[in-house]
Every structure is written in C-alpha cells, then in structure tokens.
C-alpha cells in the first residue's frame, strides 16, 4: 500500500512540474530536470518558480499531514489538527509583527518560525506547571488560551499597520499560499521538516502506544513524558516551518490522516508514512490547481477547504465506525 502511495506521489510531482499557467512541454520539463540545457524562459519558470513550489508543496503537505496524524494519535482525538497547540497563531503573530517592523522577508519568516516554537513551548510549560492528572486535556486547553492570545496579538498588529503597505502584506501572509516560494526558502525549511519527521518515524511504535492513554502506555513500558515531549517538539518543528513559508493551510492535517486510516488502518506506524505520502501528493495537486484554474492565484486554504469540507463530511458518514 505504501509503495502504491509513493507511486501516486511521483505521479503528482510529475503533474505538478508540468502543469502551470505558462505551458511547458512535458518533454522539456523532464529533460531539464535531468540536466539538459533549456532555453529561457523555460529555465527561469521551471527552476526558479515552479519546481520550488512543487517541492515546497510536497514538504508542507506531507509535513502537515504527518503532524496531524501525530497529534490525533497523541491526543486520542481524531478531530485534532496540527495547530492544536497554537503553533499557527503563534507563527502568524511572529510574521505579522515582522511585517509591522518592516523587516526583510527572510527575517519575517524566521520570526514566524521562532514565534510558532515559542508559543508551543509556552503552552507546554504552562501545562506542565499546572501539574494536572490529565495532562493531555490541560495541554489542549493551554493551547486554546495561548492561541487566542496570539490571535488577539495579530488583530492588534492589523490595527497598528499601515493600511496600504503593511495591511495587504499581513492579510496575504495569513492566507495559505506557495506563490512566492523561492529556491532559498525551500533550502531553508526542507531540512527543518525532515528534522521533524525523523523522530516521528523512529518513535512510530511508541507514539501509537500513547494512543491507549497515559497510564496504559506507561504500564506497557513507555516513558510517556519523554516520548510525548519529543513528539510534540518534532510535530511543532514541522508545523512551524511549514506555516512560516506557506501560511496557514487548513484541512490537510485534519483530513489526510482520516483518509490514510481508511487505507491502512489506525496503527500509527502505518498511518504516519501513509499520511505523509498522501498529504504531499494532495498539496502538490492542489497547488497545481491553485495556479491554473484562474488568471490569478487562488489561495490554497480556500481550495483545501472547498475540497476538504465535503470530503470530510463523506468520511464522517462513511467511517463513523472506524473511530466512534
């Protein structure tokens, strides 16, 4: 099954490389990727604009789906999405603060990334400090509280921002989009996503055991606090780096793990790779759609919601017995 999904991803990557508002012959694309010399503007469009987007879509989609599958397992709740601990709101606040301070783009992305991590660190520290018997519940509630604070911060920045130069940048920044991705962005965030995926892959079995609840997992020999801490750090790293380059793209982290569970069952060690592959293929295709359906770019979050909402309802109707 995983092999079939990997083939699907390869096909999606090929489609993503070939489809775009500027028509490039498939032969030229393949030749160029394998090192052949191509003429302008093919070169610029392919290597500076389109392939960075395709790669970024693959990493963001795969990363968000993997993070979503992880949090759903960790929090034993199939309705959880990767920004449950406030990472998106925190990263968004960092980025809009960067825009308000008129920082360069890379610094804005960096501030978004750092604030995403800081937000989750605050949530985690808060939950630990409260010493609750039910740490999972306190984590989620702390995430809601801190996320709401970051949301208020975003609103404040919007009020303070210059309406013609900063406000549009802020608005667009908060929309999910891969339209402005540069090769250097991909080079910057790809290692971070991979760095986050590695511990999840290594701890795949233990994360699955955590879905039984803290007491049972500990009685089965899992050091719950350590594993959960590592896993939250890894999933946060993935989500924060994705959000800092692509903005908030909803639905993928929620919907894809459900589809993966339909295909490979609920075991996390299978859901993780399946979600990553499916999320990657899905976002590559959605992004290809985003740049071709209209004369102008369509925000990704809009397309994922348009497609995600009905698919999710269908999944709910179909798979109710899978998890309820």
């Amino acid at each position: 099954m995983l092999a079939a999904l990997a083939v699907c991803l390869l096909i999606a990557l090929l489609i993503g490389s070939v489809v775009g508002p500027f028509p490039l012959p498939i032969g030229d694309v393949i030749a160029a990727v394998f090192g052949a010399t191509t003429a302008e503007p093919t070169n610029t469009i392919l290597f500076q604009i389109r392939l960075p987007r395709v790669l970024a879509a693959m990493l963001v989609g795969g990363g968000l789906a993997a993070a979503g599958a992880t949090y759903q397992t960790l929090f034993r709740n199939p309705l959880v999405s990767p920004d449950i601990l406030g990472v998106s709101a925190g990263a968004g606040f960092g980025a809009v603060l960067g825009i308000l301070l008129s920082l360069p783009v890379l610094a804005i992305q960096g501030l978004g990334f750092v604030m995403g991590l800081v937000t989750v660190a605050v949530v985690y520290a808060l939950a630990r400090a409260l010493h609750s018997q039910n740490e999972v519940l306190v984590l989620v509630l702390a995430g809601i509280v801190v996320g709401a604070l970051a949301g208020a911060g975003i609103s404040l920045v919007k009020i303070l921002a210059d309406p013609y130069n900063q406000l549009p940048a802020i608005t667009f920044w908060l929309l999910g989009s891969l339209a402005g991705i540069k090769p250097i962005d991909v080079a910057g965030f790809a290692p971070l996503v991979i760095l986050g995926l590695v511990p999840l892959a290594l701890l795949r079995w233990r994360v699955g055991v955590l879905s039984l609840g803290d007491d049972e997992a500990r009685a089965l020999g899992v050091n719950v606090v350590v594993v959960r801490g590592i896993v939250i750090a890894a999933a946060t790293l993935i989500t924060a780096s994705a959000v800092s380059v692509s903005g908030v793209i909803g639905w993928i982290g929620l919907m894809i793990p459900h589809m993966a569970r339909l295909l490979v069952g609920p075991r996390y060690d299978r859901v993780l790779p399946a979600s990553a592959l499916m999320g990657a293929a899905f976002l590559v295709l959605i992004d290809a759609l985003a740049r071709t359906v209209a004369r102008i770019e369509i925000p990704l979050g809009l397309l994922t919601a348009l497609i995600g909402a009905p698919v999710f309802v269908w999944l709910l109707a179909r798979s109710r017995r899978v998890w309820s």
């Binding site: 469009i45 549009p168 989009s177 402005g180």
Partner: peptide
C-alpha cells in the same frame, strides 16, 4: 497583485 506572499499575481504568468 505582487507582494511576495499570498500573491494573486502568478509569477509564471509574469515571466510569461
């Protein structure tokens, strides 16, 4: 519109 992020302008079209 071209603002670097969440643009509505398609860079590929701009180049085209």
């Amino acid at each position: 519109r071209l603002t670097g992020r969440g643009d509505t302008a398609s860079l590929e079209r701009v180049v085209g």
